[in-house]
Design a protein around this nucleic acid. Structure first.
Length: 868
RNA sequence: GCCGAUGUGGCGAAAUGGCAGACGCAACGGACUUAAAAUCCGUUGGGCUUAACGGCCCGUGCCGGUUCGAGUCCGGCCAUCGGCACCA
């Protein structure tokens, strides 16, 4: 290994301070009612996205966000906040289970080992977590409450009147099971025949399994679903007031996918008319009226609707298909069912579909239009049926061309002929549409909708792309559902039955039939003579949906979080919730949407005090390898923080992570860059320390009580100001640059003022806490004061008086180009500046032969002479 | 295809509409050293010009606009990255 002498003894002092912090519980945040709790202090909750403890350990990407939050946490503490800064483990999940399948080692053991490794790494970086609040989603004392929250969801329904989740007991309908927020449905899942198991969507990449690359097909199975769609409107609307990156809000909004439009009923032309045997004799069948509802955002184009398409799975298909088309329809539906999602959504492929032998009536003109089924219409969105308007919808146009259906323009784009307006038209004027001819699109929509409403065949309607959340997995390593089945019906266990622990299994392998591995535990499954346990488990997202709440009160055995604790950390007069949440963009929609959903349910039921959990969100950018590629085993460019720390120390590691560039930006790693930052810290060290004859570091003789020169005072206070503002703005790279400027300036001074050094150490402390603590202590011992450790200090405040200057440099421009720079007294008037500028040699030279038209004076900055 | 982000030296980057390139890396030169490492000091966007001090021009992806003045604001392109993708 690297035998090079260390530029300062970081290894010794870093381990020393980490031990001190542990022993003194330096970063423990007291809860209301605990000793040491000061109600006068404002709270600050700064949260990291807790990691999945994989076997590979942390790489340098993880600690980027963690370092940022740690700087904020340390900074806020010195500013008098009671800071909640916790860490834990999102430890249920596939890799541990896959490892168990391969080796037979129980996932709990793998998980324990991985957590130990992660924790060692995090501690070596010197993060100021309150480790007394550490949580682990696989701990029964934790997932007891994950299961408890599931029961709250299970025992609730969404009241459309109040737009709130309410206890199921308030539901007045006949079948509560049909409205619960957790329900069972037969839905298509990703089935991988090769692996013999079901996969989550995240585990399927381009229609193949992430593990092994085997084909994945859709197959209907009984699944637990959470009714997140009921909250679509609130999840979209309530994003508004959150202090999140604009892009992330947009991503969530798009994911939720709100569309405003109309639902329109198309009557079905008498089905029996076309049957060879004539009208059925049974009056119940003969008189049956069918109608098909479509959803459209372009109701203004309804005159152009000359066919209709149902999703192949549409429930009316069986009843409407004419006998002579039955065979073909059945064949088409079978074909579609066999397709994977990939095949079905492959845009390059041609449109397919079959006519089902029935017709619908267009309500605006009473025309009989053919009904088709085609897989470009999805059962899961809208009503599963569309009116085909080939004139103004690209997909319909493609379909119409394939099957030679008529294409009729009904909207004319501005500046184009009717014929040219075929295709997708954003806005235009209605044509060939008697009721709305000549109206601009928005008015046409309004008028036709009014007309349809009058006829009783249409109403305005809002639809969302968001689907209900498929909440069950056929896995071992997850939270079991607190549910039992009896006589084909499910019912929940009581709170007293929690935690419901999974059975001990020797064999974690999938059964091959799609039945979950828990089904192998025959004794465990048997709940009573007549009832059996649910064998699915919850997905990995479950534990992370509420962990930020558990951090507020991590060991409470009686409640998922205590009321006082929740109100203190998550409530408050301000916006409330987590004050700062930093993590990767990869969670922009899933985790962040799921957690918001659970939080809203808990809020509606009165268990938490605010409707939103994360007030401010920041995404750190990905750290690439030195080769500018994503870090991965495949490229061999993964960097272990511990390897960096062994050479340069934790402080250098932390500072480099922040100095690389803006937090939110993607940027490549550079070992040379770490070295540069390490040199900076070594300079800080040598500002105060020198080696004696024996090779020991001792306080430098240059460190003395002394008055600062004016120029030194200025740079010191400019640094306090900039570092403070930059930390507030999470602009850590420029904060470090400013401290480098200060250190360079101090290095050149013959005498090092203790006051200036102390201030520097306070500013540096959030970034490089070990070296700052050590040097602070050394100064304290030498100049025996009673200030205490650096963690007990106040953040410095700059004094604007030291920043004002007697003289300022003024830039002289002619026509916007710099011609000279002059130094003038700070109180020079605009007239003075103009006169000086006009008299300046270089200005005159540049303006020679021209007439001065105008002189722009920017006080204390520049003068621009406009000459032509 | 749609949505979003980003384009500045050899590299990471900095710049409330007002001196483009702070700070750092790399490179080069010097000091120290028997020597090297470490450290310290200096130079470093490009071009032209001058014996030299210096002087001049160009330069923030491309084209245009607004402005006394644009990396920054507006319009239109191009490229890279990310997300969504038959959502009616």
């Amino acid at each position: 290994m690297n035998e090079r002498r260390k530029p300062y003894p970081f290894d010794h002092l870093e381990l020393k301070w980490q031990a001190v912090w542990d022993e003194t519980r330096a970063f423990h945040a007291p809860n209301p009612g605990e000793p040491g709790f000061d109600p006068a202090k404002p709270k600050f909750y700064v949260l990291d996205m807790f990691p999945y403890p994989s076997g590979a350990g942390l790489h340098v990407g993880h600690p980027e966000g963690y370092t940022a939050t740690d700087i904020i946490a340390r900074y806020k503490r010195l500013n008098g906040f009671n800071v909640l800064h916790p860490m834990g483990w999102d430890a249920f999940g596939l890799p541990a289970e896959q490892y168990a399948i391969k080796t037979g080692q129980h996932p709990a053991i793998t998980t324990r080992e991985n957590i130990a490794k992660f924790k060692t790494q995090l501690k070596r970086i010197g993060f100021s977590y309150d480790w007394e609040r550490e949580i682990n989603t696989t701990d029964p004392a934790y997932y007891k409450w994950t299961q408890w929250i599931f029961l709250q969801i299970y025992n609730s329904w969404f009241n459309p009147g109040t737009k709130k989740a309410e206890p199921i007991s308030t539901y007045r309908g006949a079948d509560p099971d049909s409205v619960r927020l957790a329900y069972v449905a037969e839905v298509p899942v990703n089935w991988c025949p090769e692996l013999g198991t079901v996969l989550a969507n995240e585990e399927v990449i381009d229609g193949k399994s992430e593990v092994g690359g085997f084909a994945v097909v859709r197959r209907p199975m009984r699944q637990w679903m959470l009714r997140i769609t009921a909250f679509a409107e609130r999840l979209a609307d309530e994003l508004e007031d959150l202090d999140w990156p604009h892009g992330i809000k947009l991503l969530q909004r798009n994911w939720i996918g709100r569309s405003e439009g109309a639902e329109i009923e198309f009557a079905v032309a008498a089905v029996y008319d076309r049957r060879p045997e004539g009208p059925p004799q049974d009056p119940a069948v003969r008189d049956r009226r069918y109608s098909i509802r479509v959803f459209t955002t372009r109701h203004d184009t309804i005159y152009g609707a000359n066919y209709m398409v149902l999703a192949p799975e549409h429930p009316l298909v069986d009843e409407l298909t004419s006998p002579e088309r039955k065979e073909e329809v059945a064949r088409y539906r079978a074909e579609v069912a066999a397709k994977s999602d990939l095949e079905r959504t492959d845009l390059a492929k041609e449109k397919t579909g079959v006519f089902i032998g029935a017709h619908a009536i267009n309500p605006v003109n009473q025309e009989k239009i053919p009904i088709w089924i085609a897989d470009y219409v999805l059962m899961g969105y809208g009503t599963g049926a569309v009116m085909g308007v080939p004139g103004h919808d690209e997909r319909d146009l493609e379909f119409a061309r394939k099957f030679n259906l008529e294409v009729l323009p009904v909207v004319q784009a501005p500046g184009k002929t009717a014929g040219e307006s075929i295709g997708f038209v954003e806005d235009g004027v209605a044509i060939n549409s008697p009721i709305i001819n000549g109206l601009a699109t928005p008015e046409a929509k309004k008028k036709i909708l009014g007309w349809l409403e009058e006829q009783g065949v249409g109403r305005s309607n809002v639809r969302y792309k968001l689907r209900d959340w498929l909440f069950s997995r056929q896995r071992y390593w997850g939270e079991p559902f607190p549910v039992v089945w009896e006589d084909g019906k499910h019912r929940s266990l009581g709170e007293d039955d929690l935690p419901l622990e999974p059975p001990e299994l020797e064999d974690f392998r999938p059964t091959g039939t799609g039945e979950p591995p828990l089904a192998k535990a025959k004794d465990w499954i048997r709940y009573s003579e007549t009832a059996t346990r649910e064998t699915n488990t919850m997905p990995q997202w479950a534990g992370s949906c509420w962990y930020y709440l558990r951090f507020c009160d991590p060991v409470n055995a009686n409640r998922f979080v205590g009321g006082d604790q929740e109100r203190y950390w998550m409530g408050g007069a301000q916006a409330g919730g987590v004050d700062l949440y930093i993590g990767g963009v990869e969670h922009a929609v899933l985790h962040l949407l799921y957690a918001r959903f659970w939080h809203k349910v808990l809020f509606d039921l009165g268990h938490v005090s605010k409707a939103e959990p994360f007030q401010r969100l920041v995404n750190q950018g990905m750290i690439l390898g030195e080769d500018n590629r994503k870090m991965s085993k495949r490229w061999g460019n993964v960097i272990d923080p511990l390897d960096v720390i062994a050479i340069y120390g934790a402080d250098a590691f932390r500072c480099y992570e922040m100095f690389m560039g803006p937090l939110e930006q993607m940027k490549p790693w550079s070992m040379k860059g770490v070295e540069g930052v390490a040199r900076f810290l070594a300079r800080v060290w040598r500002l105060m320390m020198e080696e004696n004859q024996a090779g020991e570091w001792v306080l430098s003789a240059e460190v003395q009580e002394s008055e600062l020169k004016k120029s030194e005072l200025k740079i010191l206070h400019a640094t306090i100001k900039k570092v403070t503002a930059d930390i507030e703005a999470l602009s850590f790279n420029t904060a470090i640059a400013q401290m480098m400027i200060l250190v360079n300036a101090l290095t050149n001074a013959p005498v090092k003022s203790i006051g200036a050094l102390r201030t520097l150490l306070l500013l540096l402390n959030p970034f490089a806490p070990h070296i700052a603590s050590e040097l602070w202590q050394i100064l304290g011992e030498k100049f025996s004061d009673s200030k205490g450790g650096i963690v007990a200090q106040q953040w410095p405040v700059h004094d604007e008086r030291f920043l004002v200057e007697d003289e300022v440099e003024i830039v002289l421009q002619v026509n916007g180009k710099v011609r000279d720079r002059i130094s003038v007294p700070i109180d020079a008037t605009d007239a003075d500046l103009e006169a000086l500028s006009r008299a300046n040699d270089k200005v005159q030279a540049a303006a020679a032969g021209k007439t001065i038209r105008k002189v722009v004076v920017v006080p204390k900055k520049l003068v621009n002479v406009v000459a032509t």
